Computed example of a mutant assay.
Amino acid sequence: MNLFRAARAVAGSDGDSPVDWTAVGTAARAGTAPGELSLSAADRAGYADDVADARSRIRTASGIDFELPGSVEVQNRHHWIDANVATFRRLLAPLESGAMVVPSIARAANTGTMALTLGFLASNVLGQYDPTLLGDDDHRLYFVHPNVVGVADALEADRDRFRRWIAFHEVAHAAEFDAAPWLASHLESKMETAVSELTAGHLDRAALGDLDTTMTAVEGYAELVMDRAFDEEYADLREKLDARRREAGPISALVRRLLGFGRKRRQYERGKAFFDAVADERGVAGAGAVWERPENLPTDAELDDPSAWLRRVA
C-alpha cells in the first residue's frame, strides 16, 4: 500500500472528462494492499470443486438447467480493481458525455472519490458474479481470495466451509442470469435511465425504484436456492458476518452506508421472505417462473404480498 502514490495519482488526474479513470485505477491499487494469492493445490481444487458442486446442487434444487460463466477467476484485490474500473466507467459514461468542461479540482475530487470507492469494495468483496452490464456477453465469476481467507479467519470459521458458502451464493446468481437472458439488458436499461437523468440534473425515483425492486428479486431468489441447495446449515456464518459488519469502525460504517450496503442487506431479507412464501406455495421450481419474462418480476407492492404475485403470474 502506498498512500503517497495514491494521492499523487489523484492530484495529477487530467483530461477533459469529470473522472480520470486511468488515475482511478492507479490510485485504487496504490491505496489497497493486493493481498496474498499463492494458492495451494488444495485451494485451487477447493474452488473448482465448490463451483462444480454448487452448479450441480443448484440445478437440482431450482430445476434450472444453467451453465457456468465462461470465466471463473480467483483474484487478489488489485485484479478485482482492474476488472471493475472498466465496468464503473461504462456505467457512468452518460455522466461524462453530458458534462461541461470540468475544473481540475473537481476532476481530482471525482477521481479520488471513485478510487476510494473501488479500493474499499476491493477490500470487502468476497465473490462477485459479473454479468458485465453495459459490456459484452462474457459473464464472469470472481473470488477475491485474500478477502475470503481474511474474513473466514476473522469470523473463526472453517476456511473451506466459508469458501463453499460464498461459491454457492455466486453460482446462484449465475443460475438466474442464465435462466433469464433478458435480465442483464433489463438492469442495464434501468441503470442507463437513472444515470442519464442524473446527467440532466434530475433524480429519476421511478427508475431507481424499479432497479431496487429487480435487485431485491435477484438477491432474494439467490438466497432461496442457496438455502435449498447448500449442503450444510449456514445461519451461523450469516450471523457472524452481520455482527462483524455492525462492529465496523465509524469510517467503515459511514462508507458502507454511503455505498448502500445496508440496502443490499434489506434486499436479501425482503427478497428471501418473498421467495420463501412463493416456494412454500408452488415449490422452488414454481418460484423460478419469475425469470421467464420481464413481466413476471414482482412489483414493489408484490414483494410484500407474495399471494398477489402468485395470482397474477398464475
Rank of each mutant, 00 (worst) to 15 (best):
V51P: 03
V101A: 15
I58L: 07
P306K: 07
E232L: 13
A301Y: 15
A52T: 12
R8V: 13
A248D: 06
H173Q: 08
T199V: 12
F120K: 01
L259A: 04
L133K: 01
E281A: 10
R238Q: 11
E223F: 02
R107S: 01
R29N: 04
R266D: 13
L134C: 05
A207C: 02
E197D: 05
G63R: 00
L3Y: 15
R59I: 10
P131E: 00
L133R: 08
R293D: 09
E223Y: 00
I81A: 10
F88T: 08
A172C: 08
A28M: 01
D212K: 11
G262C: 07
L121M: 03
A287G: 11
A41D: 14
N147L: 00
N110C: 08
L237H: 01
V19M: 09
F143P: 10
V149R: 07
S40K: 02
V102T: 12
R89V: 10
A184N: 10
D65K: 09
R29V: 09
L203A: 15
R270T: 11
G135A: 00
S13A: 03
R55Y: 14
P34W: 11
D130F: 02
R59K: 07
G288I: 07
V313R: 03
S13F: 00
V24D: 03
M1K: 14
D204F: 01
P18T: 04
G283C: 05
V278M: 06
H186S: 12
R245M: 14
A314N: 09
S196N: 02
L258H: 02
I64Y: 06
V149C: 02
V125W: 04
R265L: 12
E156T: 03
A154T: 05
P250F: 10
I105E: 14
P131V: 01
A206C: 12
T214M: 12
A41I: 14
S252M: 12
A11Q: 08
A11D: 07
L121Q: 11
R312F: 04
K190H: 13
E192R: 07
S17H: 12
E170D: 13
A28P: 01
E219P: 00
A184P: 03
A301K: 15
A83G: 02
A61E: 05
T216M: 00
D43H: 12
F143A: 09
A180C: 05
G31I: 06
L121N: 01
A154F: 01
L134W: 06
R205N: 15
A206H: 09
S97E: 10
